[in-house]
């Protein structure tokens, strides 16, 4: 009865047919995720440090930035980056209006991710007991050495699971890419849906791909976690 009622709506063989088509766009999704993550981590560390050292002025701006990025839908943030930023820059004579759309997309996702990562990174850095920093200074380490050798590995260990979840989220939530005409895996699923009306099968195909990547990513995270733990304990 189940199969009978679903007839016409869902055909498993079409999922298999959609998979190779979807895979042709995987490099776009991966490029977007990797580039946005790198931007997000770099900008996130900067914002986190601004907050930790309470640099006057910047601390308040960072707070407002984080609040806006966390509190509003990403599509609105995309409008600001894609339409607002060129308008502001053109008033000072720089024309970026017809830059590649991918750049705006990476900026949107990267800046959004930075806001989330900044809080994760800040929490992770703060969680390292102050005694360890003092001990590091006591044995003659410089401030930079202390940060890289003592604080950073532990902070990464603390923050890694949350960062992993953010990356997985970004992987799937690339709906905005297709709105701008960039065809990533999810965009390809939509395109197949619009062309053949078999959207369910294409979406399920995309989910299968995301599932495999999520599993891989989880493995990588677990591996880094284990190695860091060994390193910290080993030291």
């Amino acid at each position: 009865m189940w199969g009978e009622a679903m007839e016409g709506f869902f055909n498993i063989s079409l999922v298999v047919e959609a998979l190779p088509q979807l895979l042709t766009r995987l490099h776009i999704t991966l490029f977007l995720v990797v580039a946005a993550t790198i931007l997000g981590i770099v900008a996130g560390i900067i914002i986190a440090l601004l907050r930790i050292y309470r640099i006057p002025g910047f601390n308040q701006i960072s707070l407002l930035y984080i609040s806006f990025m966390r509190g509003t839908p990403i599509i609105v943030q995309m409008f600001i980056v894609y339409y607002g930023l060129p308008a502001i820059l053109s008033s000072v004579g720089i024309n970026i209006n017809r830059w590649d759309k991918m750049i705006f997309l990476i900026l949107t996702y990267g800046l959004n991710m930075a806001a989330f990562l900044a809080e994760i990174i800040r929490a992770a850095i703060v969680s390292v007991p102050i005694g360890q920093t003092e001990a590091a200074y006591a044995v003659g380490m410089t401030r930079l050495q202390t940060f890289w050798r003592i604080i950073a590995p532990q902070a990464v260990l603390m923050g890694l699971p949350s960062i992993g979840i953010n990356i997985v989220g970004l992987l799937q939530d690339s709906s905005i890419a297709f709105l701008l005409g960039i065809v990533d895996v999810m965009g390809k699923a939509r395109a197949i849906g619009a062309n053949t009306y078999h959207s369910l099968e294409a979406y399920v195909g995309a989910a299968v791909i995301f599932l495999v990547i999520t599993l891989l990513l989880e493995k990588v995270c677990a591996t880094i976690e284990r190695r860091l733990t060994m390193k910290i304990i080993g030291d």
Binding site: M1, W2, A5, M6, F9, F10, I165, V168, Q172, D173, S175, M186, L200, Y203, V204, A206, A207, F210, L211, V212, I213, T214, L215, E218
Partner: peptide, 26 residues
């Protein structure tokens, strides 16, 4: 957990929509 995490929210919504409606009517 991994399967749910790997499935985009929109796809989850469509699957649950069809599964629940179909299951209920059956």
């Amino acid at each position: 957990v991994v399967i749910i995490k790997g499935t985009p929210g929109m796809v989850m919504l469509l699957i649950v929509y069809f599964a629940l409606i179909q299951g209920f009517d059956t």
